[in-house]
């Protein structure tokens, strides 16, 4: 069973070592690949100094395009399982084994690491939780499925889903939209409780003004996905 952790990184010089070492130590069955999405700091130099595996994007593609690069890599190199794992240190590698076990034992197409099953660990701000609840409700109404953490960036896929994402993946804010897409294709999804940390460095790209755009765009994307 070949397993890959996809680590999208854009200006993560302070947390990338921490992230990769976490995977090496706590999830040694996983290979990893960093997707350097045109960092303007020296993330790339640090990765090379450390001898990490890096794919270096020539132009900035945003989170969706970067993650898709990882899925494309996983597909072409014959990986059976691939998991997205943020480069900012939010995700804990110790949960990867649980997720893989859940995926294999239940023959699922995707497993989402959810912060809101056990409500343990870093829970994000209340306003973000409100936004996440809204997407949960929306997906529930449109599909009947309950996804407690539809914006979670910690998602593990089997080979079938890797292929699907390698071919087609939303450009920005991809998580809720692509989850809806999987549900529409009758793929089997489950959630596993995980804890997350607050980010270990860098800044979130979601500012107040951007978050309004985010909500509108993702709402539209989910609706359009439902109509396909």
């Amino acid at each position: 069973m070949k397993m890959l952790a996809i680590i999208p990184a854009h200006n993560e010089r302070e947390s990338i070592i921490f992230t990769v070492e976490d995977i090496k130590k706590n999830a040694p069955d996983f290979d990893y690949v960093i997707i350097n999405d045109c960092s303007t700091d020296n993330t790339m130099d640090i990765c090379r100094y450390q001898g990490y595996n890096v794919l270096n994007l020539p132009i900035n593609l945003g989170i969706g395009g970067a993650v898709q690069t990882g899925y494309l890599y996983a597909y072409r190199n014959g990986y059976d399982i691939a998991v997205q794992f943020d480069g900012d240190g939010q995700h804990k590698a110790e949960y990867l084994n649980d997720m893989a076990k859940c995926l294999i034992d239940n023959q699922l197409d995707m497993v989402i690491g959810s912060r809101f099953i056990d409500n343990a660990g870093f829970q994000s701000t209340w306003i973000r939780r409100l936004g996440i609840r809204y997407f949960t409700a929306m997906i529930k109404i449109l599909s009947g499925k309950t996804i407690t953490d539809p914006t979670s960036g910690m998602r593990m896929c089997n080979r079938k889903t890797i292929e699907m994402f390698a071919n087609e993946y939303p450009r920005d804010y991809p998580e809720p939209e692509s989850t809806m897409r999987l549900i529409r294709h009758k793929r089997k999804i489950a959630e596993v409780p995980v804890e997350m940390r607050d980010r270990q460095g860098g800044v979130s790209f979601i500012s107040p003004l951007v978050s309004v755009y985010y909500m509108i765009k993702v709402t539209l994307a989910i609706l359009i996905e439902r109509m396909r």
Partner: peptide, 13 residues
């Protein structure tokens, strides 16, 4: 760009 990234990779050299 994604295909270029795969050609332009550093695997621990």
């Amino acid at each position: 760009a994604q295909i270029v990234a795969m050609l332009n990779s550093y695997m621990g050299e």
